[in-house]
């Protein structure tokens, strides 16, 4: 079990390293270095930068050194929590991001819970009543969920909300809480706004999960321990819910590894359509404005948080599987 944990941990660290490289590349990609951008920005606002000041900045950030040295310097600063300044906002990147990162996480987790909440019962039903009419209907709905890109779904729902109910769907807070500091009232307000984006994000992954649950459960339903439970006189629904469903739950829950990056990705686009205060709109804006430290940091943080989330869920999954807990595998 310890080897298993170490393996997962090693892979997580490797992934984080890979993400940091990609984020650094993104920061470096626009033509010219960021001091150029800095100078242009300042020039636009009317103040000029003296040549020696620019040179000092270049040395401070190691821009005169080979690229891998720059990467190392950047990484060391990031490791101490210094993500650099946002060119556009003139404030430290972390300050600009603020609550948006946590709201992204909250929405993603909510979406995963909704995905499971929909896929689990339907998957169970579809397996137990294989080839029944509802089985086909659910499969079809799942396919439609799969086929509609979630930003499109958001767009369509927003249009009909506006058209039919004159609702301005969007945002995560009511007007009075938008700028208010955190309070129970604000949290409750958030909770009320959460379901719609969560459902929109959830639908895309649901079809896949229904399929996984259905296939796993169909496999488990054929196993001898199910017949054993029946032979003991257990009512049919208790047979199914207690034994094969429990067994099928593990591979189902482990889908978080693929679901989490998927949902985080989706949240970026859906946030833009529904104008949610997540990092999505900020990322787009920073990319367009070539505010590269901000953009790179957002990509880095999203990636790292996703990896950490997957790692934690790996640990929890391991803990709830008695076979792994007993040291059977790995």
């Amino acid at each position: 079990m310890v080897t298993y944990i170490l393996q997962r941990l090693g892979l997580a660290l490797l992934t984080i390293l890979a993400i940091s490289v990609v984020s650094f590349v993104i920061i470096q990609l626009p033509p010219g270095d960021f001091v150029d951008t800095y100078i242009t920005n300042l020039a636009a606002s009317g103040s000029a930068v003296r040549a020696e000041e620019a040179a000092a900045l270049r040395i401070q950030y190691g821009l005169d050194q080979p690229i891998w040295v720059q990467y190392w310097k950047w990484l060391s600063r990031v490791a101490t929590g210094d993500f650099g300044m946002s060119m556009e906002w003139g404030r430290p990147v972390l300050e600009v991001i603020g609550d948006r990162l946590w709201l992204t996480i909250v929405i993603s987790i909510a979406a995963i819970l909704v995905t499971w909440g929909i896929a689990l019962p339907i998957g169970i039903y579809s397996a137990v009543r294989q080839y029944s009419i509802p089985d086909y209907v659910f499969t079809l709905i799942g396919f439609v969920g799969l086929a509609v890109p979630n930003f499109l779904l958001a767009l369509i729902i927003m249009y009909f909300g506006f058209k039919l109910f004159d609702l301005n769907i969007g945002g995560l807070f009511s007007a009075e809480y938008q700028l208010a500091p955190w309070s129970w009232g604000k949290i409750w307000d958030l909770t009320k706004h959460l379901p719609l984006p969560a459902v929109i994000l959830a639908l895309a992954g649901t079809a896949q999960l229904i399929r996984i649950m259905r296939a796993n459960l169909l496999d488990e339903l054929r196993r001898p321990y199910v017949t054993t439970a029946r032979a003991r006189g257990l009512p049919e629904w208790r047979v199914i819910m207690k034994y094969p469903v429990r067994a099928a739950l593990n591979p189902f829950a482990s889908t978080i590894g693929y679901l989490l990056p998927f949902v985080v990705s989706g949240s970026i686009v859906v946030s833009l359509v529904l104008s949610l205060p997540t990092v999505g709109p900020l990322l787009l804006r920073s990319l367009i404005a070539q505010d590269m430290f901000l953009a790179g940091t957002i990509v880095l943080l999203l990636g790292v948080l996703t990896v950490i989330g997957t790692f934690i869920s790996d640990l929890i999954l391991m803990w709830i599987d008695p076979r792994i807990r007993a040291g059977m595998h790995g």
Binding site: R223, T227, T228, A229, K242, R246, A247, P322
Partner: peptide, 12 residues
């Protein structure tokens, strides 16, 4: 049953 290996649940 015949198969004592798979006739018991591994999760309980």
């Amino acid at each position: 049953f015949q198969e004592p290996m798979s006739s018991l649940s591994s999760f309980h």
